[in-house]
Design a protein around this nucleic acid. Structure first.
Lengths: 252, 252
DNA sequence: GTGTTTATCGTCAGGCAGACGACTATGATC
DNA sequence: GATCATAGTCGTCTGCCTGACGATAAACAC
């Protein structure tokens, strides 16, 4: 297959972001409202074109910073505070996924602690955190009974894949701490698991599991009562990234 | 960000394939020799440009068929024989990964049973199955002491990622059966695990695990002595795709 | 037949998870 | 200040699964 610049069609390459966080006991994703066709007025995942001199991960980190102000947590700087976790998710390239032209989108997954408020180019009304179930119920009705339009493009599929990735990945890695502030309690971490998986976990067994896994949590020495009840020990994420044996997601 | 066709740079999009199989107790990958610059004469992963009207998965399946004659196993046809497993692996888009131009490669991972011989456009000398350790030892020496050049482009990274995906995925899925012919024995399946992980497994515990997992293996009723020794029961892959609890990869 | 090879069944101890009881230390309420 | 509600933490018990390994079975080679 000799090299011939005219032998391949040109593509536009974008990055789309599935930015997840846990707010009020629910797994939420960042959505932005589209200002122009196609799908004008509909909600979509944040994203944009990859620039000519940019790596894919760089482009994703740039989009994430533009939309949320978050910086990406650098694994080389373990003590860094409040950095988001960012990883490549999958690539979507159906020829008809964008009616304008051939666009290949490299989707990324970002996990962030609960944030004050989203900003989409400074316009807060065009960006919001929405529970993923709400974004994924295609053409249904929202919590206030208002009709809900499905996400633009194939973003429902991308979001669904991202949520599934997050759900499975917190089983065998310490990634759930990416949803927590830099210092957190065992109970707060448990509520993250409960929100992401949509299940209730036994607080005693959960406590035994996470405190008994070496390298998962390191106590900071402090305590807090911000959740009410007896003061809880504060922890920071330990260096371990893999959980072995994994945290088991309950059946059903 | 209004739509402006001149606002984004054009990319070439390719698919590259990590095709793995198990031959003579070793995990092997398909490599093709490059016939033109850059990296002329060096070994590389098979791949090619995505066509204008083609989905990414279609392009990967087409390349796989061109290089190996393999058809992709369709999950909708469970009884299909000898189909390869194909899944998207990751996307590589470093601006400098191809010196000619900006190329984004959507790598795919294919798992295939042992095949007669590769064919690269009909030229067998330009395609081969090579043990992955041999392909990954950058700039070392092969089994016969001949110098080994590293793979072209970033293909060593892609191959490494694909091997790691395969190694981890057979832990918690029934994907190892994709390396086996349509009917196989427990011992043959065990040798697949041993080759992919590079470890020795206890035959008795392995037998107990795989035969005790519902839906993993379905006995066909037949037996074979093709491995020597006592006749072994023949099995077919069952419908189950997820192994729970997973098959544990031994430490170290 | 004897030895070799591979397959298959059993046994036993240790580790881990689920279920759940008990106790502790706060703030809220009366 | 006593009581209650809330959350956190420590233990216990039982059952399941795994790793280690003994024992038997059924073929082939000589």
């Amino acid at each position: 297959m000799p090299y011939d610049p005219s032998a391949f069609p040109p593509f536009a390459v974008t990055v789309d972001l599935v930015v997840l966080t846990v707010r009020r006991h629910a797994l939420c994703a960042l959505a932005v409202r589209r200002g122009e066709p196609p799908f004008q007025g509909r909600w979509a995942l944040p994203g944009g074109f990859v620039r000519a001199d940019e790596d894919l991960a760089q482009a994703a980190a740039r989009e994430l910073a533009e939309e949320t102000g978050l910086r990406v947590h650098d694994p080389a700087v373990p003590a860094q505070d409040n950095g988001a976790h960012l990883e490549q998710l999958a690539t979507y390239g159906d020829p008809k996924r964008d009616p304008r032209m051939r666009v290949v989108s490299v989707a990324h997954l970002a996990l962030a602690p609960d944030l004050p408020a989203p900003r989409a180019g400074g316009d807060a009304s065009n960006a919001r955190w929405a529970p993923v179930e709400e974004l994924l119920q295609q053409g249904g009705y929202g919590r206030e009974g208002e009709p809900v339009a499905p996400l633009a493009f194939d973003h429902a599929q991308i979001l669904s894949d991202g949520v599934e990735r997050a759900r499975s990945k917190i089983e065998y890695s310490s990634l759930a701490t990416a949803f927590c502030p830099s210092e957190f309690t065992v109970g707060e971490l448990r509520r993250v698991y409960e929100a992401v998986w949509g299940v209730a976990l036994d607080p005693r067994n959960f406590h035994r599991k996470v405190t008994g896994t070496p390298g998962f949590l390191v106590p900071t020495g402090g305590t807090t009562t911000r959740q009410g009840g007896r003061p809880a020990q504060l922890f920071r994420a330990g260096g371990a990234t893999l959980l072995n044996p994994p945290m088991l997601r309950p059946e059903v």
